[in-house]
Simulated assay, not measured.
Amino acid sequence: MKEETARLAPSDRGFTLADGVFETIRAVGTLPLWWPDHLLRLKAGAACLGIDLPYEDKIIEDAMSSLLLAEGHQEAALRVTLSRGPAKRRGLWPPGDARPTLLVTVAPSPLARSPQTVVIARRTRRNELSPLSRIKSLAYGDNIIARREALERGAGDALLLNTRGNLACATVGNVFLRFGGNWLTPPLTDGALAGIARSRLISFLGAREETIVAASVERADAGLISNSLGWSSIVRLDERELPPADEVLDLAPLYSC
Rank of each mutant, 00 (worst) to 15 (best):
R198D: 01
L111V: 06
G173H: 15
L184W: 08
T211P: 01
S216L: 09
P110V: 01
L201M: 10
R122F: 08
G181S: 10
T124Q: 01
P131F: 06
C169K: 03
N143G: 04
T189W: 03
S109C: 13
F179D: 11
V213M: 07
N162H: 15
A194R: 09
G173T: 10
R219F: 07
V213K: 11
A158R: 12
L151E: 12
E209F: 11
A192D: 02
E210M: 00
L184G: 00
L167Y: 03
P131Q: 13
R148V: 05
E209S: 00
Y140F: 07
R208Y: 10
S199Y: 03
S133P: 02
N182K: 12
A194I: 02
F204Y: 06
E149I: 05
G223C: 05
G181K: 10
C169T: 13
A222G: 04
P187T: 02
Y140T: 06
L167W: 05
I120F: 06
I196F: 05
V172Y: 13
T189S: 11
R200V: 00
A146E: 00
I135H: 09
D221Y: 02
S130E: 05
L159A: 07
K136D: 09
R200G: 02
I135K: 04
F176T: 10
N227A: 04
A155K: 15
L160W: 04
I144F: 03
A139M: 15
R219N: 13
S199K: 02
V217F: 15
E152L: 10
S228G: 09
G223K: 11
F179N: 07
T211F: 00
D157M: 03
R198E: 03
S203R: 11
E152S: 00
L188A: 10
A222Y: 00
A197F: 02
G173I: 15
T189F: 02
V119R: 04
G141Q: 13
L193E: 08
L188S: 04
E152H: 14
W183A: 04
L201K: 06
S228D: 00
C169N: 14
S226N: 01
P108Y: 07
R123I: 12
A215F: 00
E209Q: 05
L111R: 06
D142E: 15
G156R: 06
V172F: 13
A150D: 06
E149V: 01
F204N: 04
L159P: 07
A139S: 11
A170M: 09
L161N: 14
D190Y: 02
A170Y: 08
L111M: 01
T185K: 12
A168W: 14
P187R: 01
L151R: 02
G206M: 09
A121L: 03
R164S: 12
S203H: 11
E149F: 07
G223P: 05
R148W: 10
D157H: 11
R219W: 03
P110Y: 08
V119M: 05
R122D: 11
P187W: 02
F176N: 01
S216P: 03
G223L: 05
Y140H: 07
V119I: 15
A139T: 10
R134P: 13
E210P: 06
P108W: 08
D142K: 05
E218M: 15
